[in-house]
């Protein structure tokens, strides 16, 4: 066992608390940087996809793991982000702005969802979010002038200025950059009053209130931030899949996102993420249900069920 001698309180609010951590995370980053030179385009694409889902996972983790609000409808935000981004791009808005507006838009919808969601908890909340996502799916199917309805929608290629980011390597780095910044912001939230307020709301609403925490505000912020992250993931996902259809963002995806968070352990960032993502990555190859158009969509249900059986403590309390 090694002992870390702390000399000031400043050390405790750092993300890397000692040199060992800094060293290992730098190594990880170097490895991630070297992948484009080592791996084929196919695996780079898969890695980018993992990064995208990890961003969505951060969003859901903040809401479900840290604030204790279960959402069975997060695919809706993925869809909102993807469609908004594709739509703004098609209007000729540059990539960076379009993505930012999509994130804000997704956040706004998240804030609106918070209004009914504030009144209910537990299973009622799960179903309210589920209902919300089904409504969103229907809107995406029928708002033909914007979304193309069931015909779907082509996503313009990403570019900054005149530089195309279409290549697998460029897209990989973009996703990596967004994932790193999302993780950083996620960790910032957790070491700030807003993140602590979230955990307080999760563990005891009554006592959070007596500590001066505004429940409605905290939950609304949690919804907004969570929807923002998931919207960002949606925007990136739009480029990854290239072609949007309303049923790409259905209940199965919501459940999958939730499982990703739950299997990884709802209260831990970083490592468990990677673990849940690795699971996410390999599950399709173990699964027998492979007829879906995209094989990420349906990993083997048995594997998931077993995961939760083995490690029930990783689930949030309802």
């Amino acid at each position: 066992m090694r002992f870390i001698r702390k000399t000031n309180y400043y050390q405790d609010i750092q993300i890397f608390k000692h040199e060992g951590q800094t060293f290992w995370y730098t190594c990880l980053l170097l490895i991630l940087f070297s992948f484009p030179f080592l791996l084929s385009d196919f695996y780079l694409g898969e890695l980018a996809l993992i990064f995208i889902y990890a961003i969505a996972g951060i969003g859901l983790m903040l809401l479900t793991g840290y604030t204790g609000l279960v959402s069975l409808g997060h695919a809706a935000f993925l869809g909102i982000g993807a469609y908004a981004h594709a739509y703004f791009l098609s209007l000729g808005i540059p990539f960076v702005f379009s993505l930012s507006i999509s994130v804000l838009f997704s956040s706004l919808i998240g804030t609106l969802l918070a209004i009914p969601a504030l009144r209910v908890t537990g299973i009622y909340l799960a179903v309210a979010t589920l209902a919300f996502s089904i409504i969103v799916e229907q809107i995406l199917s029928h708002w033909v002038s914007v979304t193309g309805g069931y015909r779907g929608m082509l996503v313009p290629d990403p570019s900054i200025g005149n530089v195309s980011l279409k290549s697998h390597t460029a897209f990989y780095f973009i996703c990596l950059a967004f994932l790193s910044s999302s993780l950083l912001i996620g960790l910032n939230i957790l070491r700030s009053p807003v993140g602590r307020a979230m955990t307080a709301v999760r563990d005891s609403e009554i006592s959070a209130q007596s500590m001066g925490i505004n429940l409605a505000r905290t939950k609304t912020i949690a919804f907004a931030i969570s929807a923002g992250f998931t919207g960002l993931a949606g925007g990136l996902l739009a480029h990854k899949i290239g072609y949007l259809a309303p049923d790409s963002f259905n209940l199965l995806i919501s459940i999958q996102l939730l499982l990703m968070v739950v299997v990884g352990g709802t209260r831990v960032f970083t490592w468990s993420y990677l673990r849940s993502n690795i699971h996410w990555f390999f599950a399709p190859s173990l699964g027998f249900v492979k007829r879906q158009p995209s094989r990420k969509i349906c990993p083997n249900p048995r594997i998931r069920t077993r995961y939760i059986w083995i490690n029930p403590g990783s689930s949030p309390d309802l």
């Binding site: 279960v70 537990g122 739950v262 249900v289 249900p301 998931r304 069920t305 029930p312 949030p316 309802l318």
Partner: peptide, 24 residues
């Protein structure tokens, strides 16, 4: 029955998984 005493959420997930199994 093996899940008695576990968080309700885990049971919910199990039943979702059962749904998948039945459908498959």
């Amino acid at each position: 029955r093996p899940m008695i005493g576990e968080p309700h959420f885990s049971v919910l997930m199990i039943t979702i998984g059962l749904g998948f199994i039945f459908r498959a």
